[in-house]
Write a protein that binds this DNA or RNA. Structure first.
Length: 953
RNA sequence: GCCGACUUAGCUCAGUGGUAGAGCACUCGCUUCACACGCGAUAGGUCACAAGUUCAAAUCUUGUAGUCGGUACCA
């Protein structure tokens, strides 16, 4: 079989995914075991406008690894995929394009035409992210792909809205909201980011106080001199809002202002007279202790205004320019221009006391970074109290969902729920789920799932639907059940005939089979925005939690530990990494990071996994070059476990231990642990030791023709068929069988490479599948995942192999330190106990080969020439390599001294501990005993090394 | 302000109440017939600092410093 010397990931990545998908391997229907347990994961739907970034790649890798693992374990597995309509992002993108292509705004073409354009855009470009998901190798069920604006999901949205409205949890109200003047929509608190302002200032404005006497005078005269001799100074960071002030507030206990409460001031730049009021909210220590109150433009002021029945003057338009109410001098000015002008005017009037530098954090629009303007506006809200209690009760009573890692997310999640405020759900956009509320000509509102229902309620069809759409997260909150066919009670039948695209299977049992889902994998940043809301709506509308476990993965940082961001331009494109190192190596890198911990991206790390992939490739290549006469045979392997060589018993033990540990690691979501286990099993145990130990056995009889062109040097295909003895064939079968099991263990992490290699192994068939998939086309992804068999874990074999490895390592150390040429063969003298001698005797050929020795002399006591290099073995052994003429005595003494020193450090510590009466008395007996044994062993080794060193002189 | 996390080898990171680990980089030696994306052998750490608990602390507690997050308020 021709097989290249280095692994080219692209070949495997091109072929296998298509076949897996076309063969229906990803769909749960592939599982033919009617009793199979189900396992389901829903993807956090990426924005339809988005393209793959490292955060996706990380969470996708974890989800797919779990899915492939569970599938191989025989679960009826669903990894549900889909995308999010991403209201603001998508609308912005299409708006931009519209402007560029047609020089038109959405308003120019109207709502219907605009949304049609967005759908067009989605059709054309929305597939980018799903193509990338295929590239990643995700075993998602494309036949169940969903989009948050699919008819069935939209129906669920309307259903939920209507139900919440009918029970009073959704209401329409006028509140101070977070307004983005650029996107011209309201935002929820979670879509607002606080950032420090570059040049924050605190402006001190003097307001003239009017008393009864001055009242008449002030309006009569314009110079203000006689108006009053008193001023009250307020401090503000947003002076332009003074145009909407309707009061000045002071603390009721503030002696400075006690006599002023109840009086009024003449609000400069306006002709309004506003009261001075007292309210506990004001802190006397801050600023001047007097606060200007602008109820329509500040949330705290609004509340205070409510308490005192103040007028609420809106002085801005929705683009943050000033409106008529701000006064003729200001109308039309941008808020910042107006600010300058207000300050200028105050200066002219002598009413500007001072301006201080002041650090201030301002809310910014998460999307466009514009400074948010708190604005009085009528919006739709969800009352969160009952929903919150559902989620809190679940956490308190059942500790659910379980977070991985639990610290700090459980606490953060709980604390956030406890302080939950109402959720602003309306958005002034066209792209999204239009709010299912209709108004009649009188302005009465009718909330219903459809116009027909609303008309029925209203008794007229002269209705206008609410212009706004819902927050994108409103539909995402329903994702775990809306994607599985939930359309609300009594609505299921309607959903069946809802014009769902025919490619989508709408199985009425999906919800019952796959809900609740098993585990959610997502990032920290959407814990509140998404995770908590899914819990709340899930409990509310299905009566069940949406998932058991939540894995919160870390953030992939750039190589300097900085967050990747578009503006910094420090992002690493997963597709570039795929291209350079292969998907499997990238997946291993991502899965190899500790769960929940941020990590700095290093190409070197991927490179090492690329090398690992190549190692697997070459190990397999070697096995295939020596596979004549053999084929994978698990039964034979099991039956050999008691009779074959140490190497065989050992690798079998290592394999089964690794399998057990990998399963445990995955059960506890310790992906990095599984990656480490597999890496070391494959590279160290299998390649460095097992292959080397059995190499002679499996290559026996093979002809390696030196190839003239230097390629395909080992080629059994073109030579005469080689006679293979039964023993050789059996050894080949054993190594192939171990390899096959190892590939299965690796498959959830490295799907492409393992499929590519597995298909090449002799004797693979769908007979190796988990019984749930017995009639499917053969693929490693359907094989039974090894779980590890205790009966095949052989501690004695592992101990014995440790001795052999130690012996070989000691000899290699001598070779290397003494600069023995590789071609030079040594004879090795070993003094050891009878049982250890027997082990070495049995494995003599392998020891000779790996230590590059031609003779091994086993004795009770060493009897060697002075010109020998020596070393000690654990358990009382000693070795010597006669090096007549080759030895450098000085060097050898140094080498021995070095080893003595190292042992001595440990010995000192042991002696110290064991001479401590407290330790011997209070520490557990077995611990003390273990240290004593260790002490004796080291003392013996040190003695032996000292002796060796002395005889050199 | 409040809450939290982190600080371990040159770098990136695992880990644990009882002998400190990996990958990469470094040093030395190898074209040994699967692999130089390789093989073999070294070197490298007061586990941020201080106190406490304990027979025993890098690990638990408290404090300090630095780094990074989250969140609230800000007239």
């Amino acid at each position: 079989m021709e097989i290249s010397k280095t692994y080219d990931p692209k070949v495997a990545e091109r072929e296998h995914y298509k076949r897996w998908e076309a063969s229906g391997f990803f769909a749960p229907e592939i599982n033919q075991n009617a009793d199979a347990e189900s396992f389901s994961i829903v993807i956090p739907p990426p924005n339809v406008t988005g393209s793959l970034h490292m955060g996706h790649a990380l969470q996708h890798t974890l989800m797919d690894t779990l899915t492939r693992w569970k599938r191989m374990r025989g679960y009826r597995t669903l990894f549900l995929v889909g995308t999010d309509h991403a209201g603001i992002s998508t609308q912005l993108m299409v708006t931009k394009q519209l402007k560029k292509d047609e020089h038109k705004s959405p308003r120019d073409i109207g709502r219907e035409a605009f949304t049609a354009k967005v759908w067009e855009w989605k059709k054309k470009y929305g597939g980018e992210i799903t193509r990338q998901i295929r590239h990643e190798g995700l075993s998602v069920d494309w036949s169940r792909e969903r989009f948050t604006m699919d008819e069935s999901l939209s129906k669920a949205v309307r259903e939920v809205f209507v139900r919440l409205y009918e029970e009073g949890s959704i209401y329409r109200g006028t509140r101070i909201v977070n307004w983005c003047p650029k996107d011209k929509t309201v935002l929820s608190d979670l879509e607002v980011k606080e950032e420090k302002a570059k040049d924050g200032r605190l402006y001190y404005l003097k307001y003239p106080v009017i008393d009864a006497k001055a009242r008449t005078a002030i309006w009569a005269k314009s110079d203000g001199d006689n108006a009053s001799d008193r001023f009250i100074t307020v401090a503000t960071t947003r002076p332009e809002t003074m145009l909407g002030d309707t009061a000045v507030a002071v603390n009721p206990d503030d002696d400075r202002y006690k006599d002023l409460v109840g009086k009024t001031i003449a609000l400069p730049l306006t002709n309004r007279e506003i009261p001075i009021i007292a309210d506990e909210y004001v802190e006397s220590e801050f600023g001047t202790g007097a606060v200007k109150i602008t109820p329509a433009h500040d949330p705290n002021d609004w509340e205070l205004g409510e308490r005192h029945g103040l007028e609420k003057l809106v002085i801005m338009n929705d683009d943050a320019t000033m409106n008529e109410t701000a006064g003729p001098e200001f109308v039309g000015l941008d808020r910042y221009v107006a600010r300058e002008k207000v300050i200028e005017k105050f200066g002219e009037l002598g009413l500007l006391e001072k301006i201080d530098d002041y650090e201030v954090t301002l809310p910014h629009c998460e999307r466009c970074k514009t400074v948010i303007e708190p604005l009085l506006s009528e919006q739709w809200f969800v009352k969160m109290d009952t929903l919150r209690d559902l989620a809190l009760d679940l956490m308190r009573k059942e500790n659910s969902p379980r977070f991985f890692p639990e610290v700090p997310h459980k606490k953060v999640y709980t604390a956030w729920l406890e302080n939950l405020k109402d959720w602003t759900i309306s958005r002034q956009l066209w792209w999204g789920h239009q709010i299912p509320a209709w108004y009649d000509v009188q302005g009465n509102v009718f909330v219903a799932s459809s116009l027909d229902e609303a008309a029925e309620k209203a008794g007229t069809r002269e209705l206008t639907q609410d212009e706004d759409v819902l927050d994108t997260w409103f539909s995402s909150a329903l994702w775990p059940f809306s994607t599985l066919g939930w359309t609300g009670e009594g609505n299921r039948q309607a959903a069946e005939g809802s014009g769902q695209p025919t490619a989508n299977r709408q199985s009425p049992t999906d919800l019952s089979v796959f809900y609740p889902t098993d585990v959610l994998v997502t990032g920290r940043d959407i814990l509140f925005l998404w995770v908590s809301r899914m819990v709340m709506t899930g409990l509310k509308f299905t009566g069940q939690k949406p998932f058991d476990d939540v894995i919160i993965h870390g953030t992939v940082l750039d190589k300097n530990g900085q967050r990747m961001s578009k503006t910094k331009g420090n992002g690493i494109d997963p597709l570039d990494v795929f291209d350079k190192y292969g998907v499997d190596a990238t997946r291993m890198t991502l899965a190899g990071s500790a769960t929940g911990v941020d990590f700095a991206w290093r190409d070197e790390r991927v490179e090492s996994f690329r090398n690992f992939a190549n190692k697997i490739w070459n190990a397999t290549r070697f096995c295939l070059m020596n596979s004549e006469g053999a084929s994978i045979d698990l039964d034979a392997f099991y039956s050999f476990s008691n009779t074959t060589s140490l190497a065989d018993r050992w690798i079998l033990s290592r394999l089964n231990k690794t399998a057990k540990a990998v399963n445990y690691a995955l059960e506890t979501y310790q992906f990095h642990e599984a990656v480490q286990l597999l890496y070391h099993f494959f590279w160290d145990d299998f390649c460095d030791w097992y292959i080397e130990l059995v190499k002679d056995e499996i290559t026996a009889g093979a002809i390696y023709a030196a190839s003239p062109d230097g390629e395909g040097s080992a080629d059994t295909g073109t030579a005469e068929p080689v006679e293979v003895s039964d023993e050789t064939a059996a050894a080949r079968t054993r190594i192939l069988t171990v390899l096959e099991q190892a590939l299965r263990l690796l498959h959830p992490f490295m799907p492409f490479l393992t499929e590519e290699l597995w298909q090449k192994l002799p004797g693979v068939s769908s007979g190796m599948h988990n019984s749930a998939y017995s009639s499917a086309g053969q693929s490693i992804m359907l094989t039974d995942f090894p779980v590890g068999d205790d009966a095949l874990i052989d501690e004695q074999a592992e101990r014995e192999m440790t001795s052999v490895i130690e012996l070989i390592s000691r000899i290699r150390n001598i070779r290397s330190e003494m600069n023995i040429k590789p071609g030079e063969k040594l004879s090795v003298h070993v003094a050891a106990s009878g049982s250890v001698q027997a082990i070495f005797k049995q494995n003599e050929p392998q020891i000779l080969k790996l230590a590059r020795a031609d003779r091994i002399v086993l004795t009770e006591k060493l009897d060697v020439p002075k010109a020998s290099a020596k070393a000690v073995l654990g358990g009382g052994g000693e070795i010597a390599v006669p090096l007549e003429g080759l030895i450098d005595f000085e060097k050898e003494r140094k080498r021995l001294q070095n080893q003595i020193e190292k042992l001595d450090v440990e010995l000192q510590r042991l002696n110290g501990q064991l001479s401590n009466a407290n330790f011997v008395e209070k520490a557990p007996m077995e611990k003390v005993e273990a240290l004593r044994v260790r002490q004796a062993e080291i003392e013996r080794q040190v003695r032996a090394l000292r002796h060796s060193s002395e005889v050199l002189v």
